[in-house]
Design a protein around this nucleic acid. Sequence first.
DNA 1: CGTGAAGTTGAGTATGCTCAACGGTGGTGG
DNA 2: CCACCACCGTTGAGCATACTCAACTTCACG
Lengths: 252, 252
Amino acid sequence: MSHTSFDLSKASALRQAAPRARADASPCSACRVRHLTFCQPLDDQELKQLSAIVTTVELVPGDPLFDESEPATHLFNVTAGTMKVYKLLPDGRRQITGFLFAGDFLGLANAETYAYSAEAVTHAALCRFPRKKLEDLLARYPKLESRLLGMASHELAAAQEQMLLLGRKSAKEKIVSFLLTLAERAARRGQTSNPITVPMSRTDIGDYLGLTTETVSRTFTQLKTGGLISLQAGGRVDLRDLVALRNIAEGF
Amino acid sequence: MSHTSFDLSKASALRQAAPRARADASPCSACRVRHLTFCQPLDDQELKQLSAIVTTVELVPGDPLFDESEPATHLFNVTAGTMKVYKLLPDGRRQITGFLFAGDFLGLANAETYAYSAEAVTHAALCRFPRKKLEDLLARYPKLESRLLGMASHELAAAQEQMLLLGRKSAKEKIVSFLLTLAERAARRGQTSNPITVPMSRTDIGDYLGLTTETVSRTFTQLKTGGLISLQAGGRVDLRDLVALRNIAEGF
DNA sequence: CGTGAAGTTGAGTATGCTCAACGGTGGTGG
DNA sequence: CCACCACCGTTGAGCATACTCAACTTCACG
């Protein structure tokens, strides 16, 4: 599972999301993923205000975006590619707390510092908003803040689902739940949900699910042998028996 | 560790938080825990609006407040006592996703239904807001929505910390982290942080930390034997060596 | 007191981890 | 263009942490 094929596949997405050069048109109004993001409720006039404070960031796989406990100066919006956010223990144990795709935001912090580190999984593009200036805009446009609260609520529900997974599910249930969540999120973004694209490494998956790479690998093999999934080129996973998979994920 | 002693200790808190009878004074303006809650930014005039839509709920240990997948018609604010929120798998496995104390809110839902069930751990009192009417108020008072977003961000950070715990910490690290978090939250509420009050059962603690009751019990014994904590009457836990405990919790 | 729930302790076990070897693949440099 | 190398993924063997099942104790309450 190399990154290369994904780098290629993301290249066009990067171009789509990139702001346009013309000065009079708001770059944000041309954004292909706006309907997925927190900017969604703004009209053209308001998007111009947003455009005035945004800059874009492009990352290659492995590039860090920010580190835990660093001053939380910016909020980001993923426009293309995949990001991961994680927390570390002093001895190197790592918990990936989320994978982020187009439309997801990161960097929301109540405290002065980020609560986690963020790093690119694939080639990725992001919008970067200075926190202070964005807060001014939030104060001016309550519907923006409302949208952000809605997205934060959604994330909270996802976090609780993940706690159930981490605390109470078996390795097999974890992997299957993970695959189905990927499929669901892809569908939500309007992408194909079967076969799904799994851009992250076995190690990343393990660190997300509270497993080791070996266990992740063994479980994939087991699912493959059982005819529930099949692994295809480019890190794609074909979900062969959705009913059976859903039963496993729910713990039946 | 019975609930009784806690029921007694909470009785006065219940009275403190109970709305007053006079019609012209806003009950909310007399609230003892307002500075901890999302109502905090409102002035007296605005609190009156809030009072108009609030009702109060009192629960005894074990009382359910609402169930997962039930229509999310209300949002709640804990004013006294301890609540737990949890998710279930079909075979009965349970993950408690949080314990809630005075000042914490619950029932925030982006979807039509609650994402979890909620139940009283001790005697508890809550404010109940009809979701629709509260949303009207949120639209009218952006500072309310802003405050709610801040609290949701804080919860998200806590959820990520909990994922790190569930996915990557040992039983001992989990228990110690849990005790220290309880101490920190007690301090935040202005209560004594040592000894701490642990109002929930071993089973609840296990379901919160992804452990069994037996492992929780064994680990407490181990910490006690090691002189790191001591168990006192009324479910109080004395943290004997904070430095050592912090090192364990952080994974050193 | 008697009873039932909660907590503790013990013995044996299983799930997932550790340590290790090997194979494939893509990227690099000669 | 090919050979090498590093990284990722897979598989195996043995082990450890936490679980299961069970007995016993403690405690709250009737």
